[in-house]
């Protein structure tokens, strides 16, 4: 996976290299005055398990909607299997993108259909005869460990089982690309782990390309070979997961890595201050630095259903800590 720079996509108008399952070049998507993705470039190696991580609002959902064909970018190129989809007619494009298997956070199963009928649904849309599509759906359900659950309705399944049905439905058309959008976010940790290992196993057995979109670094750490970090609609860092996690270059990556790896030690003469910020982006870091504070640790968290970042600051004793925090965030708390 290459670290994208604005120059690489400008200077290479040719088709995507064969090693790329998916390539986005200079993608921009705006909603009204808000830019969701800006000059976004991403190269997903064929056969990889690529994590796309970012906080809420970073552009993940927009990216998923573009990749699943629900939205069209304002500009840029979207290469899938070496073909620029954005030059195709909407109908052709939908047909190509239907070959990408999608796994959703809230499963999106049809409540009035059995597990088997849910898995068979994409084949039904494609016009495959009933006997054939049900046989295929049965096989695929077996592959996700749900033999014997064919006739259960979603309401009769656990969260993990529902997600297995969701994965089977994504696989039944035999896709080369599987896109899991926050697929474990609605599940408890144990179930999450089993779903991630199932996705990993399937990726290896079927030799397909897996994209895992998540806001949890733990998911990236445990299930991916490559990672791309999004912030404010831009790619800020990407590469092999092991390398990026061992030596994160960007503040966002470090913030997402969380409290397991303190960013810095507290220097002598500094006091520790904790505060909660909606996001730890470059602008906020700049303001903190200008005020004399230094981020020593950061951890993403959810407060009142909203994504927040807990930040620990080292503040020189000679500075009035109260004044500094007052300028940033009124509800900052002193912990030390």
């Amino acid at each position: 996976m290459t670290i994208a720079t604005p120059l690489t996509h400008v200077s290479s108008p040719a088709a995507a290299p064969a090693s790329a399952a998916l390539e986005l070049r200079g993608i921009t998507k705006r909603f009204g005055g808000h830019t969701a993705l800006e000059d976004f470039t991403l190269h997903v190696p064929r056969g990889s398990r690529t994590g796309i991580i970012g906080r809420s609002g970073a552009g993940k959902s927009t990216l998923v909607r573009l990749l699943s064909g629900l939205d069209t970018p304002d500009s840029g190129e979207l290469h899938l299997g070496g073909e620029n989809l954005l030059t195709l007619s909407p109908a052709q494009r939908r047909q190509r993108q239907a070959r990408t298997g999608l796994v959703f956070q809230h499963f999106n199963l049809l409540a009035q259909r059995t597990a088997l009928q849910n898995v068979a649904l994409p084949l039904e849309f494609a016009g495959v005869p009933k006997v054939k599509r049900e046989a295929q759906a049965r096989d695929t359900l077996a592959q996700v460990g749900l033999s014997g659950f064919e006739d259960r309705y979603p309401a009769q399944l656990s969260g993990g089982q529902k997600q297995r049905v969701g994965i089977a439905r994504a696989l039944v058309t035999g896709p080369e690309l599987l896109l899991a959008d926050e697929a474990t976010s609605a599940l408890d940790p144990e179930t999450s782990a089993s779903i991630l290992s199932l996705l990993t196993r399937i990726q290896q057995e079927r030799d397909l390309t897996l994209i895992i979109v998540t806001h949890q670094m733990e998911v990236v750490r445990s299930a991916t070979t490559h990672v791309a970090v999004l912030d404010h609609g831009r790619l800020v860092e990407s590469g092999e997961t092991g390398r990026v996690l061992a030596n994160p270059q960007h503040a966002t990556t470090r913030a997402l890595l969380g409290a397991h790896q303190p960013l810095a030690e507290l220097a002598p003469g500094e006091t520790l201050q904790q505060l909660t910020l909606p996001a730890l982006d470059a602008a906020t870091l700049g303001r903190l630095a200008a005020l004399g504070g230094r981020v020593v640790e950061a951890q993403p968290t959810v407060i009142g259903g909203r994504q927040q970042v807990l930040v620990w600051l080292g503040v020189p004793q000679h500075l009035s800590a109260d004044r500094l925090l007052g300028q940033l965030q009124p509800q900052a708390e002193e912990v030390a």
């Binding site: 629900l70 239907a98 999106n108 049809l110 649904l121 849309f125 494609a126």
Partner: peptide, 27 residues
Amino acid sequence: VPAGVTEAARAMGATTSQIVTKVLLPE
């Protein structure tokens, strides 16, 4: 019928009439 379900169907390549007859009305 949850919007996520119809969007999922659309992403699977369903036409509008398929979404109506196979997703919206049965659900």
